[in-house]
Amino acid sequence: MGKQCLKIATVYFALGVLLSVIIGVSGDSSLSPIQSHIHLLGWTTLGLIGLIYVAFPALSVTILARIHFWIHNISLPMLILAIIGKNYAIAEAGMWVDIGWVLLATGVMLFMVNVWDRLR
């Protein structure tokens, strides 16, 4: 599970850097919150979780780790797309932002429970 998290984290890093270039070249800073979420929740958070799973392999073989992995990697793209939609005043986007945040927070809580339960 740790290697998968690290691999996907690098994808988020590349997407964040690409978006940074687009923002820099276009001068349109309205996409900056999206870029920040990609870097923080994708690259940084998922990368650290991957490193934790590599350092403590017993954490990565639990059902909580698998569920967290999938919730994180479904809800984060959903959240990013919803924030983009909200940025462009798409009416339904606000509801999807809320759903994305709730799912992402749920995944993070599962990660926390996994760490507290298995790391003794």
Rank of each mutant, 00 (worst) to 15 (best):
I23K: 03
I8W: 08
W116Y: 01
L59C: 12
I74E: 03
S32Y: 06
I8G: 06
F56E: 12
I63R: 09
L31E: 08
L59K: 10
K3I: 15
T45H: 07
Y12A: 10
L15R: 07
D98T: 01
G50P: 02
M78A: 06
Q4G: 12
T106Y: 15
I63H: 12
L18W: 03
Y88F: 14
L19H: 14
I52R: 07
G27Q: 02
V102W: 08
S75F: 10
M95Y: 11
H68D: 14
G94N: 08
W70N: 02
I34N: 01
A89M: 04
L46N: 12
L104E: 01
H39W: 05
L40V: 03
N114A: 14
V25T: 05
I34P: 05
K86H: 04
A58E: 11
H39G: 04
M109R: 05
V115Q: 03
H72D: 09
S75Y: 10
A93T: 01
M112A: 14
F111T: 04
L76Q: 07
I71A: 09
N73R: 05
R66A: 10
D28W: 10
G16Q: 06
E92S: 14
I52F: 15
L76M: 13
V113P: 02
V54C: 03
P77C: 06
L51G: 06
L103H: 10
F13D: 02
A105V: 14
V102Y: 15
L104P: 00
A93M: 13
